[in-house]
Amino acid sequence: MVTIKIYGTLRLKCGMGQLETYTDSIKDACRLLALATGTPEKEFRRCKFAVNGKRVGLGTKLSDGDELVLLAPSGGG
């Protein structure tokens, strides 16, 4: 089981903040998120990713118990 958390404006757009699911890669996780929310898959694939608190790329594999975080770029003040 992998816990997926979504932050930033994508969370508001897709209406989901967290999903627990079985998946073995970030690419597959994006596919599952698209199915679960009806939001285009590309919206998820273009995020920044972190697995267990560490920044990773789209091609990263996932293991049971991982926490995957999707973040949109941000700026503020």
């Binding site: 932050y7 930033g8 404006t9 508001l12 973040l71 949109a72 770029p73 941000s74 700026g75 503020g76 003040g77």
Partner: peptide, 13 residues
């Protein structure tokens, strides 16, 4: 980001 979340949107990042 800024209109939807304001600067508060940075906490998670």
């Amino acid at each position: 980001q800024m209109p939807r979340l304001g600067t508060a949107g940075l906490v998670s990042a």
